[in-house]
């Protein structure tokens, strides 16, 4: 989030709400005086928040491509990469970092490639395709690994220690941003936005819309691979069900970040802000002691904040009235 990031915030009204919420939350966290702003606090925060940020990034290009393509499969996909990595790779003694990372990124990209092909050639609404992906992978994950278990490769165990800000997990995040930054500078990014904004216009103007959609999915899948790696580092093991919870969280982060689920509007910056805001909300709530009901208060407050910021979003970005 350099100066170009700041310029984006000032120019793009859809970023007003997430950026504002971010500042408010940051102030609130600082006011609560808890240890987020220490080395350990920040390191832990990065460790916990990274899977969500990456999951939100993973669905960003797919949502941007339009057709109401909310990718519901991202959570189970992270879970799938996690359990196969632990069971099939580590379970068979393959722990080489290059192989593991290649497996994660490649599997994510490959799965999304298949989903893109189904969306394009079978021509079924993307949300139905990804709903199907969600159900299939949720089931398969449990078939690969029936209960949480296994261990992450040795070299990954230190990732999850959360003792240093500059951990390999942060590196995953930086790598994802770097890839996105490069893509933003190519015509792909503009073509993606135009495809999402109005696919028929893009098609008739000579944009290869199918290629754009496939790339969007593959990039999203690769990000899901990175998300799965950071998630594996976080739990240091395999878990067939927890990954699935990232779907709703990621979609929520995206919307909190000001993206439109119908395409054309949104970006990595917004999604990242949305994900960080979600983390900050739970962090902030965890600093209060509600006794036995604290989990429930967190859930309710989280729901209310979601409702509130969506409503604010409506008032800030509503330009088009329904005639």
């Amino acid at each position: 989030m350099s100066s170009s990031g700041i310029r984006q915030v000032t120019q793009d009204r859809s970023l007003f709400v997430p950026a504002g919420l971010f500042l408010v939350l940051l102030l609130a966290v600082a006011f609560r005086g808890q240890g987020l702003f220490t080395n350990n606090g920040l390191a832990g925060a990065i460790l916990v928040a990274t899977p969500l940020i990456l999951a939100a990034l993973a669905i960003t290009p797919i949502v941007m491509a339009g057709r109401g393509a909310v990718d519901l499969s991202v959570g189970p996909l992270m879970g799938f990469i996690n359990v196969t990595l632990i069971t099939w790779l580590v379970g068979n003694g393959i722990t080489n970092p290059v192989a593991v990372i290649a497996w994660a990124v490649g599997l994510g990209a490959a799965f999304q490639f298949v989903q893109a092909l189904v969306i394009i050639y079978v021509r079924v609404a993307p949300i139905i395709v990804t709903l199907s992906g969600f159900l299939v992978l949720s089931g398969v994950n449990l078939m690969v690994m029936s209960r949480p278990g296994g261990v992450a490769p040795d070299w990954m165990l230190s990732w999850g220690a959360g003792t240093s800000v500059f951990s390999p997990v942060l590196l995953l995040l930086v790598a994802a941003f770097a890839v996105w930054g490069v893509l933003r500078r190519t015509m792909f990014y503009r073509n993606l936005r135009m495809t999402g904004a109005d696919e028929r216009m893009a098609y008739t103007s000579g944009v290869p819309v199918d290629v754009v959609r496939i790339i969007a999915h593959v990039v999203g899948g690769a990000f899901a691979g990175l998300a799965a790696l950071s998630y594996t580092a976080l739990i240091s093991s395999g878990d067939p069900t927890q990954g699935s919870t990232y779907t709703l969280q990621a979609v929520t982060a995206l919307v909190l970040g000001g993206a439109s689920l119908s395409g054309g509007r949104g970006g990595a910056l917004g999604s990242t802000l949305g994900a960080i805001n979600m983390f900050l909300i739970s962090y902030l709530l965890s600093t209060f002691n509600f006794g036995t009901v604290s989990g429930f208060v967190t859930q309710m407050a989280f729901g209310l904040i979601l409702v509130g910021s969506l409503l604010v979003n409506v008032f800030v970005t509503s330009r088009r009235a329904v005639a």
Binding site: S260, T298, Q299, A301, F302, G303, L310, N313
Partner: peptide
Amino acid sequence: GQALIMSLGVGFAAVGAVQ
């Protein structure tokens, strides 16, 4: 288009309150 996320938020709030 985003209504589903609103319904999710309302659901969280409601079930949290009940608990």
